[in-house]
Amino acid sequence: MFAGTASASDKGNMAQLSEDVRASLRFFAFYLANGTLDMELLDGVDYKPALMEFGSTLEMVFTIYTNVLEVDETGRVINDGDAQIRAAQWIRHYCDPSYVVDPPFQPWETELAGP
C-alpha cells in the first residue's frame, strides 16, 4: 500500500467528499478541458493553451472554483453555476486583460489552500 492511501476497511473511518461535490468537480474539469465552460462568457476565447502554459494558471482556476463552491450540511452542492462563472471570469480576464470582472474578486476567492 502507498503512503497516504487507505484500505477499503479504513475508508469507513475517513471523511470523504460527497458524491455531489465529486460530480461537480468532475463536470467542471470536463467543461474546462472540453472548451465548454460558460460558453457565453468565454465565446471566442481560446483559453486552453493559456491554462496549460503555466501550471499556476490552471491551479488558480481550480482554486477559485473550489473556494466559491458551497455545500449544504448534507454534502449537496448549492452553487455550482456561481463557482463556474467566477472561474470563467478569471479565465476571461487572464486571456483578455481588458475584461473587467464584476464584482471584483475578493481575497478569499483567490486564496490558495495548503502548504
Rank of each mutant, 00 (worst) to 15 (best):
M60E: 14
H93R: 15
D82I: 15
W90G: 02
D46S: 13
Q84V: 05
A50E: 13
G55P: 01
A87W: 01
G81K: 10
A88C: 02
E111N: 06
F105I: 01
S7V: 01
A50Y: 08
M39T: 15
T110V: 13
E73M: 07
F54M: 15
R92S: 05
P103Y: 03
S56G: 05
D102K: 01
K48H: 07
F105P: 03
P97M: 00
T74D: 10
K11S: 05
A23I: 07
E109H: 14
F105H: 02
H93A: 14
A83I: 04
F105C: 05
G4Q: 03
S7H: 06
G55Y: 10
A87C: 02
M14N: 10
Q84D: 04
D102V: 06
L37Y: 10
Q106P: 00
M60K: 09
R22M: 11
W108N: 04
D102M: 06
I91W: 05
V61D: 08
W108A: 03
A8D: 13
G12L: 10
T110I: 14
P103M: 06
G12T: 10
P107W: 05
G44W: 00
A87Y: 04
W108L: 03
D43A: 11
E40N: 14
D38L: 00
Y65F: 15
G35N: 06
T66L: 12
A23Q: 13
D72K: 09
V21Q: 09
A8I: 07
S7D: 07
S9F: 08
E40Y: 10
V21H: 05
E59D: 15
G35E: 04
V61C: 14
E59S: 15
E73C: 12
R26V: 11
G81W: 04
Y65C: 03
Y47F: 11
A83R: 01
G35W: 00
Y99Q: 03
Y65H: 14
A33K: 12
A33R: 12
I85G: 11
P49F: 01
